[in-house]
Simulated assay, not measured.
Amino acid sequence: MKILLLGAAGQIGHALTATMPEGCDLLALDRNALDITDTAALTALIASEQAQAAINAAAYTDVDAAEAHEEEAFGINAEAPRAIAAACARSGTRLVHISTDYVFDGTATTPYRPDARPAPLGVYGRSKLAGEQAVQEYPDALLIRSAWVYDAHGRNFLDTMLRLMTERNEIRVVADQTGTPTHAKSLARAIWALLDAEARGIHHFTDAGKTSWHGFAKAIEAKARELGLLDGCTVTPTTAADYGAPAPRPAFSVLDCRGTWPITGTPQDWNDELDGVLAERKAAA
Score class of each variant (00 low, 15 high):
residue 62 D to V: 05
residue 61 T to S: 15
residue 130 A to F: 12
residue 150 Y to L: 06
residue 158 L to S: 02
residue 162 L to A: 12
residue 113 R to S: 13
residue 119 A to N: 13
residue 145 R to Y: 07
residue 161 M to T: 10
residue 160 T to N: 08
residue 78 A to G: 10
residue 111 P to G: 10
residue 92 G to T: 12
residue 66 A to F: 04
residue 101 D to L: 09
residue 132 E to W: 07
residue 148 W to T: 01
residue 57 A to N: 10
residue 111 P to Y: 11
residue 91 S to L: 09
residue 151 D to Q: 09
residue 130 A to D: 13
residue 66 A to T: 04
residue 64 D to P: 01
residue 84 I to L: 04
residue 131 G to C: 07
residue 144 I to E: 02
residue 109 T to G: 05
residue 160 T to R: 10
residue 51 A to M: 00
residue 171 I to P: 00
residue 156 N to V: 12
residue 109 T to H: 15
residue 86 A to D: 13
residue 149 V to P: 02
residue 148 W to F: 15
residue 130 A to T: 13
residue 171 I to N: 02
residue 93 T to Q: 03
residue 129 L to Y: 01
residue 95 L to F: 08
residue 53 A to R: 07
residue 154 G to M: 08
residue 121 L to M: 14
residue 54 A to D: 05
residue 120 P to R: 03
residue 57 A to Y: 09
residue 147 A to Y: 00
residue 67 E to F: 02
residue 58 A to Y: 05
residue 92 G to E: 13
residue 107 T to C: 12
residue 97 H to I: 00
residue 162 L to S: 03
residue 132 E to V: 07
residue 83 A to C: 08
residue 83 A to E: 11
residue 77 N to E: 09
residue 54 A to P: 06
residue 158 L to I: 09
residue 103 V to A: 09
residue 101 D to V: 07
residue 141 A to W: 04
residue 75 G to M: 08
residue 76 I to D: 10
residue 153 H to I: 11
residue 67 E to T: 07
residue 101 D to G: 13
residue 87 A to T: 12
residue 82 R to F: 06
residue 149 V to W: 05
residue 49 E to F: 03
residue 77 N to R: 07
residue 126 R to L: 01
residue 148 W to M: 12
residue 88 C to M: 02
residue 127 S to C: 08
residue 57 A to W: 02
residue 145 R to S: 05
residue 71 E to W: 08
residue 60 Y to N: 05
residue 152 A to K: 00
residue 64 D to C: 03
residue 167 E to D: 12
residue 72 E to C: 04
residue 136 Q to L: 15
residue 149 V to N: 05
residue 86 A to F: 13
residue 124 Y to P: 04
residue 117 R to G: 02
residue 172 R to K: 08
residue 126 R to S: 03
residue 127 S to Q: 01
residue 143 L to T: 10
residue 156 N to W: 09
residue 170 E to G: 04
residue 50 Q to K: 15
residue 108 A to Q: 06
residue 70 E to Q: 15
residue 152 A to F: 11
residue 155 R to M: 10
residue 140 D to S: 13
residue 161 M to H: 11
residue 139 P to T: 08
residue 56 N to G: 09
residue 106 G to Y: 00
residue 60 Y to S: 07
residue 169 N to K: 12
residue 170 E to A: 15
residue 68 A to P: 03
residue 64 D to G: 10
residue 75 G to A: 15
residue 140 D to Q: 15
residue 50 Q to E: 14
residue 168 R to W: 11
residue 158 L to M: 14
residue 113 R to N: 02
residue 158 L to N: 01
residue 148 W to V: 01
residue 67 E to Y: 04
residue 157 F to C: 01
